[in-house]
Amino acid sequence: MTERQQETEAPPLLETRDLTVEFPNPAGGWTPVVQQVSFTVGQGESVALVGESGSGKTVTSLAVMGLTGVMGGRVAGGSVHFDGRELTALPEREWRGLRGPGMGMIFQQPIRSLNPAFTVGDQIAESVRRHLGFNRKAARARAIEMLDLVQIPRAAERVDDYPHAFSGGMCQRVMIAMVMACNPRLLIADEPTTALDVTVQERILQLLRELQEQTGVSLLFVSHDLAVVAELCQKVIVMYAGEVAEQGTAADIFLRPRHPYTSGLLAAIPKPGLRSDRRLESIPGSIPAPGSWPAGCRFHDRCPHREPGRCDSRHPDLTPAGPANEARCLRTSEIELQGVTVA
């Protein structure tokens, strides 16, 4: 595990290039929902994928997992490179072998993501049996071991419980146990704590951090909440309206954002003592739905720095900005944006 981290020169574990995902629209055509998304996740690295709800984070994650088809969509262009392999043209059979030992995903709704009709032990064991070829007994032992690893008390008893006997936070732990049971190289966590209480949220994040230290798994952490990301990730990708608005190192992005949207997201982080739900109050309006993205910069109708005639006519490219960042803003070099200091 540590040796993985050490190989700094090694190619990234995951690399998407110009990934475009489309879903069918009522008119009978296909609407792009995610467009030309490129990013990398290195070995053992934690990368955050942030953006308001509806910006395309989940769809991007599912595309990496090869699950867009399941949801009725399709990957219309671009590539997904994982561990030296090109995945977009992979036959479904090989995909299935990759999900589990290669990459695993946990979801926003842990309770609904577990099958109510089978015990949690059964659901953990079935991946292990399929992918690692364990027999029934060994798989059960592995399930107990994993439940113990995610700090579920009395794992040996609880392994035979059904999901309805677990709370939301405990269900998320079970989900993590299930995914980690196959020793994946990449863990995608899609808003793993959004549905949970604040206190529980903190403990799940702590668990993820510990697991990552122990196993060296790479993490793609999806969240709409930059505050959560600050403690966990080295790299941040900000998505808006289906495309990457800005990406770079966490430290840089927090301190000195290069895109007005990122700056707005940062300003919306609740300050201590001022906890409220006034999320994104600093950005007026709401995110446009796929198919109704405005011309020019997709953010222009909400942007405090827009320049009429320019921002609404030319679609900006993702261009280098600052030491290690990239931003999709025409005026990025002309404007001074507010960041935050991370404790």
Partner: peptide
């Protein structure tokens, strides 16, 4: 994923 807002069909 479930919170997809599909436009009303009619």
């Amino acid at each position: 994923m479930k919170n997809v807002t599909t436009p009303l069909d009619d």
